[in-house]
């Protein structure tokens, strides 16, 4: 059990969980302006999601140990996704 707590994967999970809560707080409705469009909220929420996704792909899926072509393909997909969102604003 102690080894699981000290495992780097658990540290990454903590980072992912905290990021999720920050993202949730940022994107949830607060006060009277709750449903207004917000480039800032979108930027924060999407950037956090892409960083989290990259952490899952590289560390949990172990893509950081994979051949370079796979690492680059996954990063290219994330970049395309970011471009799609950025294009809408």
């Amino acid at each position: 059990m102690t080894s699981h707590v000290r495992n780097p994967l658990t540290g990454i999970w903590l980072f992912l969980a905290i990021s999720t809560v920050i993202s949730w707080w940022s994107g949830s409705q607060h006060g009277a302006n709750s449903y207004q469009a917000s480039t800032w909220v979108t930027a924060i929420v999407v950037l956090i999601a892409l960083v989290k996704t990259r952490f899952v792909i590289r560390n949990y899926m172990e893509v950081r140990f994979a051949p370079l072509w796979l690492q680059l393909t996954c990063d290219a997909w994330l970049l395309c996704l970011f471009g799609l969102v950025a294009d809408g604003f």
Binding site: G27, Y35, Q36, V45, I48, A49, V56
Partner: peptide, 26 residues
């Protein structure tokens, strides 16, 4: 084991993006 785990992690990261795009972004 690695094949199954890879699939499961994919399910995880797809949800991360769905949550951001559908539930949170404004």
């Amino acid at each position: 084991l690695e094949t199954g785990a890879t699939y499961w992690h994919m399910v995880d990261f797809l949800w991360i993006i769905i949550f951001a795009l559908v539930y949170l972004m404004r």
